[in-house]
Simulated assay, not measured.
Amino acid sequence: MATAIKETPVLKGEAARHFLKTIRANEQKKVPKADYDRAKEAYKNFKVVCSACG
C-alpha cells in the first residue's frame, strides 16, 4: 500500500519573503549556452528513445 503524501505547507512571513526574493533574483540569471545546449541535446535523445518505445 502506498504512503500518503503530506500537504505542502504555505510559506508565511520571513520565509515567504526570502523565497520570493530568491525566485526574483534567479529569474534575472541567464543559463550558460553550454548548459542550454547540453539540456537540448538530452531532450532530443529522450524523444528518440521514447518514440522507439511507443
Rank of each mutant, 00 (worst) to 15 (best):
E27R: 15
Y36N: 07
K40M: 08
E7P: 08
K6T: 07
P9H: 02
K30P: 03
G54V: 13
T3D: 02
P32W: 06
N45A: 13
K40C: 00
V31K: 11
A39H: 11
K30T: 05
P9R: 03
L20E: 13
E7W: 02
K30C: 01
F46R: 11
K29I: 04
K21P: 02
P9S: 02
K12V: 07
F19P: 04
K30H: 07
H18K: 15
A15P: 01
N26K: 15
V31Y: 00
T8G: 04
R24G: 01
A52Q: 14
T8D: 07
R24W: 09
T22A: 14
R38M: 03
D35I: 10
L20V: 12
D37M: 10
I5D: 00
K40P: 03
K29S: 05
K33P: 07
Q28R: 15
I23E: 08
V10M: 09
N45E: 10
K12G: 04
A34K: 15
K12C: 00
P32G: 08
E27W: 12
F46Y: 13
E41D: 07
C53I: 15
K40L: 06
I23L: 14
R38W: 00
T3C: 02
S51I: 11
K44D: 08
L11D: 00
A16G: 02
C50Y: 14
A16V: 04
T22D: 12
D37Y: 07
K40A: 08
Y36Q: 08
K44S: 08
V31A: 06
N26I: 04
R24M: 10
E41Y: 05
Y36D: 01
E27K: 15
K33Y: 01
Y36W: 13
K47V: 10
A25E: 12
D35H: 13
E41L: 09
T3M: 06
E7C: 05
I23S: 10
V49S: 12
P9T: 04
R17T: 03
F19I: 01
V31N: 02
Y43R: 15
A4F: 09
E14D: 09
G13C: 00
A16L: 15
I5Q: 10
R17N: 10
R17W: 03
F46D: 06
A2G: 03
I23F: 12
F46Q: 11
Y36I: 01
K33F: 06
N45D: 10
P32F: 06
V49N: 10
M1L: 05
K47C: 11
E7L: 06
A15H: 02
Q28L: 12
K30F: 05
T22V: 14
E7I: 02
A52P: 06
A39T: 04
D37Q: 06
K40I: 00
V48K: 15
C50S: 13
A42M: 08
K47R: 15
V10G: 06
N45P: 00
A15Q: 08
E41H: 03
G54F: 14
L20H: 14
E41A: 07
K6V: 02
A34I: 06
A25F: 07
K47G: 10
K12Y: 00
E14Y: 01
K40Y: 04
E41R: 13
G13V: 04
K44G: 03
K47T: 07
